[in-house]
Computed example of a mutant assay.
Amino acid sequence: MLVLGIESSCDETGLALYRQGSGLLSHALHSQIDMHREYGGVVPELASRDHIRRALPLLETVLAAAGVQAAEIDAVAYTAGPGLAGALLVGASVANGLAFAWGKPVIGIHHLEGHLLSPLLAQRAPAFPFVALLVSGGHTQLMRVQDVGEYEILGETLDDAAGEAFDKTAKLLGLGYPGGPAVSALAARGRPGAVVLPRPMLHSGDLDFSFSGLKTAVLTQVRRLAEPLDEQARADIARAFVDAAVDVLVAKSLTALKRTGMKRLVVAGGVGANAQLRAALDAAATRRGFAVFYPELDLCTDNGAMIALAGALRIARWPEQARHDYRFSVSPRWELGQPQPA
């Protein structure tokens, strides 16, 4: 089965072709970072308009790269939520329009399920079951994953997610958009221990997270130090923030593995590309004797490949989920593991 995946939930337009038995044939991505940087964050209306401009040219790109014709596509998968309503509607409209024109079935996919399954596209892919640390945008969750569609939330953020805390810390330090990579790069020049920040909920006894207090601690440090902050001071604060966030994410992940008795940890989502987090988890895996898996770096951000994969896996397991009526809705808010809200 050859599946076209379309992702348009926020500020990246991604299309990809995935064939069961062969794997990922091609994928193409357009990032809107340069457009939104001027505003310091995503402007939903601009994001939606840009998705409209990019979708069909990207389709031509992935078809050419894979060396296939549109008529060979067996199904179309698209992100149905969560995300920005207007941006989701663009992808859903394009997907259903193409599927209708081609006479092919279509399936809506949960954005976070795409991230969750994206490590299956890596050369070193995990087997089911596993514990997943999902750190994407406004989501930070630990999940028990038994199989495709079988997810149990073990813990989640109670306020700011890790990605949100990275972005807010970047603004406090005068860094550009997007904040995560900028904070990580600056932290690499910081001195360990020069600034000490709290590890929120590190010893809470559960698997939940909270990063709003860590963001507030960064604000307190910025106000305490003389302004304007010199480069070393900013780097030291960034290092302290990254160290604190990574400590919490690693500790909670280890606790989840211990409580579930599992030996495989999957890390997915944008923060999963963070070099400090990967290094800390790799070191912990060596010490504790478990295996840790990541998506390829170019598939950590939003992308069509993860949507095509999730669509193919769902259709293979539940063929009835692929629709031929081409009626659709999108769900800006949608909890993973629950039916799509009406």
Rank of each mutant, 00 (worst) to 15 (best):
L277S: 11
V248I: 11
A280L: 08
G261T: 05
M262S: 10
V266W: 14
A273G: 05
V248G: 11
K258D: 08
V267K: 04
Q276W: 13
A244N: 06
A240F: 11
A251W: 07
V246S: 10
A245I: 11
S253I: 07
V271E: 09
V242I: 12
A279E: 15
R278T: 15
K263W: 00
G272P: 06
M262I: 05
L265E: 07
V250S: 02
A251L: 05
F241H: 08
V250N: 00
A244V: 05
V246I: 07
L254V: 01
L265I: 05
F241T: 06
F241Y: 09
L277V: 02
A245R: 07
K252A: 06
A256M: 06
A279P: 10
G272S: 15
G261I: 02
A256R: 07
A245N: 03
A279S: 15
D243A: 13
V248L: 13
V250I: 01
R278M: 10
A244Y: 15
L254N: 04
L254W: 01
R264S: 14
F241G: 07
A275Q: 10
V250M: 01
R259Y: 03
V267E: 14
T255E: 13
K252E: 00
G261V: 03
L277A: 14
L265Q: 04
V246K: 05
A279L: 14
R278A: 10
L257Q: 00
V271M: 01
T260L: 12
R278Q: 11
V271C: 00
T260C: 09
A273C: 04
R278W: 14
V250F: 11
V250C: 06
G261M: 06
T260W: 02
A275F: 10
G270R: 10
A245G: 08
D243Q: 04
S253Y: 00
V250T: 09
K258V: 02
